[in-house]
Amino acid sequence: AHHSAMSPEEFISRIMEAEPPEIYLMEDMKKPFTEASMMMSLTNLADKELVLMISWAKKIPGFVELSLADQIHLLKCCWLEILMLGLMWRSVDHPGKLIFSPDFKLNREEGQCVEGIMEIFDMLLAATSRFRELKLQREEYVCLKAMILLNSNLCTSSPQTAEELESRNKLLRLLDSVIDALVWAISKLGLSTQQQTLRLGHLTMLLSHIRHVSNKGMDHLSSMKRKNVVLVYDLLLEMLDAST
């Protein structure tokens, strides 16, 4: 069925099914970390996750109907935000820890070995705490992730051709479906109408923090690459080059 004909419940069930599987770093961790070893583990994991992220995006109803140019632009704009929201979701029940993968968990203090990363860890932990306070539900999490993807490029491009305009209109309708799905997910929590409106506001306001941390993270990774602390390759290199 086309996403516009789906009920919010159906739409959420489709994006829940699209969720990527758990991913393992599968490296022999030599502790204590060095700046290079920690950066290498983080970028290796990000590269693996990126491949799965493309597969995830393609499973979001309506995404592959957008123009290929829009699909590329959206993914290159939001990839680090998506990785960070996933990290927050995995870490939400582990205060003070960042669960990058089941076999790669870091305490805040372990960030000390990489110059400039502690500040980013603190921002990630703070946003995770906020999600913990709000008792983020899985249905809400999957909607927020889809919202990040579809909203990522909305204010940085303006359609010129008829094809671009058509894709943009499809994108806006798709965002409507995701917003409807999030509203529906919130409505299932047994809150008053006012509390539902407030929750929607609080959840969507967190997205601006995630964009901010992602921008910081992007600058940090670019600087680590420039200083040759870490070798960035494959899909991650393509995404990073695209965004610097």
């Binding site: 693996k48 491949v51 799965l52 493309i54 597969s55 393609k58 592959v64 290929l68 140019a69 699909q71 590329i72 993914l75 290159k76 494959d234 899909l235 393509e238 995404m239 080059d241 695209a242």
Partner: peptide, 24 residues
């Protein structure tokens, strides 16, 4: 540089009907 050349892997993964997991 065209979008396709600049984002070779991303383009390939988006266009390919095979699961990216298999490609990886």
């Amino acid at each position: 540089t065209s979008l396709k050349e600049k984002h070779k892997i991303l383009h390939q993964l988006l266009q390919n009907s095979t699961s990216p997991v298999d490609l990886a």
